[in-house]
Design a protein around this nucleic acid. Structure first.
Lengths: 162, 162
DNA sequence: CATATCTCAGTAGGACTGAGATTG
DNA sequence: CCAATCTCAGTCGTACTGAGATAT
């Protein structure tokens, strides 16, 4: 008996398939791609959403603070703000009390833009995670959240280094 | 009251934190990094493990088949085999019955190498996924597996387009 | 002088594409 | 002539680094 190599019929080595890290990166890649495409249709980028959402949540703040809160690198924040400023969704002004910093502020255009992007993201994610029930989604998010926390600490869990 | 910006004390915007796709890619990045480092210490690469494991599971096969089964791009398979051949862990020979193909075969050195890499990977993953119970790990793998399957199909789930 | 911020140029690695040569 | 395979050169987007300018 000969199997035509149906693209949906490709067997994966059990030893390989048993590697959660591989599964994780494969799924992350496709999910990231579909959400990125959804945002690209609106001429936006993942980092734009991250910045806008953070500004909405915590108010005007410096680029350094945006970087820390979003996890987006400081140099990529620069590029994101460049674009967002061009789009009038944020304003960038030197902080008069500390002239090293820029104070980034969400405009009303930015508020609307954020809602637009949030909607697009929600739809893209609903499609990407369609096979999971609500309960499963909650479990997944909980597990991933704990893993992110776990990896936040470089090596030692030094809650009490004196 | 003023909060010192303790690195472990950075709040994330709820709207941002509610995006599973972001969580997923963040965790995938750190997990991938730690496993990649574990393999790098042995002068190996994720793709090397994928190829060796697939050869062990399915026997000698062409590079095209290895590409399909591992999900690694055909051109990256070339680079991986180049290295593995240099290391004597696989052999590469033109298929006499179809001279377009190379038949890649796992050597006994390769078998040992595979065990070595599998061990390193297992340890790295145990550390990376430490916060999850065995049950949770099984759930996670099950969910990710279904998501990968879901994304395998380009757009429509056309089991019956007529 | 040490530190923090913003910015830019550039690096490193990963996924992928396009095309040429060869063979079926 | 069309299709599959192997290979190489090169593209594209991502995360990140190093360093300079400025300010505290």
């Amino acid at each position: 008996m000969i199997w035509a190599m149906d693209p949906t019929d490709i067997e994966i080595a059990p030893l390989l398939d048993a590697q959660p890290s591989r599964l994780l990166s494969q799924v992350a890649l496709t999910v990231t791609r579909s959400t990125a495409q959804a945002l690209e249709r609106l001429d936006a980028h993942r980092n734009h959403f991250a910045v806008l959402a953070t500004l909405q949540a915590f108010g005007p703040q410096s680029q350094a603070e945006l970087s820390r809160r979003t996890g987006v690198d400081r140099s990529d924040i620069v590029a994101a703000i460049d674009q967002l400023e061009r789009d009038k969704t944020v304003s960038r002004a030197v902080d008069p009390t500390d002239r090293r910093q820029n104070i980034i502020t969400l405009t009303s255009v930015g508020e609307a833009r954020l809602e637009e992007l949030a909607g697009a993201l929600e739809r893209a994610q609903a499609a990407a995670f369609a096979p999971l029930s609500q309960t499963e989604m909650a479990d997944l998010v909980s597990m991933l959240g704990r893993l992110r926390e776990h990896h936040r600490r470089p090596v030692g869990d030094d809650a009490g280094t004196s």
